[in-house]
């Protein structure tokens, strides 16, 4: 079947340009995303209440300030652990196996499965009736602790780190490595002086993604941590649903997002975020 002689007036057809399509997409995003965010920013200011900006005062002191610090601390810890594992794994898949596709499928598969289910699986693994306690008699403090939250986020975001690192490493010309080996460099030295520099863009991309995702995680502390492990996302949720303090929830959101966007802006000069996400 072929569409033709459509009853669309020429005037309309000639006037719809790619710019209009862009405008439609951005307009949708602006109406249902950017505008709501701006409303949230407005609410955070608390104009009209007795004390404007008091929410910010509250958010930047005591418990809340500690939560913000903790979020970025957890984010950095998760990023480091995840990158180390992802790098070693990618190196193995690229240079040691002949079944690259199988390994990649196994890495991508968990991405299809909801976070809440994967976190639940981790909790089941370490639960008192689970196989880990069965085997060792203790969970080594993995459940409802800092360790558990960071392990959970590492597991959740590992695929996001493996894929860009794998891609950049796989793109390295094998001749460079052979050349380095022929020139007498050992394999560790080859990794350090050839593979690492050439896969750096993938590492930065992976680190950025993992950091963005983990520092904003809600489910990892909620399922695998205790209230002492709450991160900023949990505080925002609690301020809204339990304290009914929308100004505080909004202020926390604004502070967190500004810090994060500033970090992204710094790294964005090094890697294009669009390309980063496209790798996945």
């Amino acid at each position: 079947m072929i569409f033709r002689n459509l009853p669309v007036p020429t005037s309309v057809r000639e006037r719809v340009t790619p710019r209009h399509l862009v405008a439609f997409g951005l307009g949708w995003l602006a109406l249902f995303f950017v505008l709501p965010i701006l409303v949230l920013v407005w609410q955070s200011l608390g104009i009209g209440t007795g004390e404007p900006l008091s929410a910010y005062q509250q958010a930047l002191s005591g418990l809340y300030l500690w939560t913000i610090v903790r979020s970025f601390y957890y984010g950095i810890a998760t990023t480091i652990v995840t990158l180390a594992l992802a790098y070693a794994f990618s190196y193995f898949v690229v240079f040691w196996t002949s079944m690259k596709n199988l390994f990649l499928i196994l890495v991508v598969l968990p991405l299809w499965i909801a976070y809440i289910i994967r976190y639940l699986g981790i909790q089941l693994f370490f639960s008192p009736t689970g196989p880990f306690v069965d085997l060792f008699g203790t969970d080594f403090g993995f459940l409802f602790s800092t360790r558990g939250v960071i392990l959970g986020m590492t597991i959740a975001y590992l695929p996001f780190a493996i894929l860009p690192i794998y891609n950049s490493m796989n793109a390295i010309d094998r001749d460079h490595i052979h050349a380095s080996r022929v020139l007498g460099a050992g394999s560790l030295r080859t990794v350090y002086s050839v593979v690492f520099p050439l896969s750096l863009s993938g590492i930065v991309a992976a680190g950025l993604i993992v950091f963005i995702l983990s520092s904003g995680s809600f489910l990892a502390p909620a399922v695998l941590g205790s209230s002492e492990n709450f991160m900023i996302a949990n505080m925002i949720e609690r301020s809204y649903t339990e304290l009914f303090n929308i100004e505080l929830a909004a202020a926390l959101s604004v502070i967190y997002t500004i810090i994060l966007l500033a970090l992204i802006a710094v790294f964005n000069s090094y890697v294009n975020l669009g390309e980063v996400f496209e790798n996945i």
Binding site: L26, L29, F33, P36, I37, V39, Q43, S253, G274
Partner: peptide, 28 residues
């Protein structure tokens, strides 16, 4: 390119914030 990056914002902003913003906006 900058505007295209804007299209990716929902991936970067924490979903807690997105959810909060949308429910607030929707009720208002």
């Amino acid at each position: 390119e900058e505007l295209a990056t804007l299209m990716l914002l929902p991936l970067m902003i924490s979903p807690v914030i997105t959810g909060l913003a949308i429910i607030q906006f929707s009720s208002q």
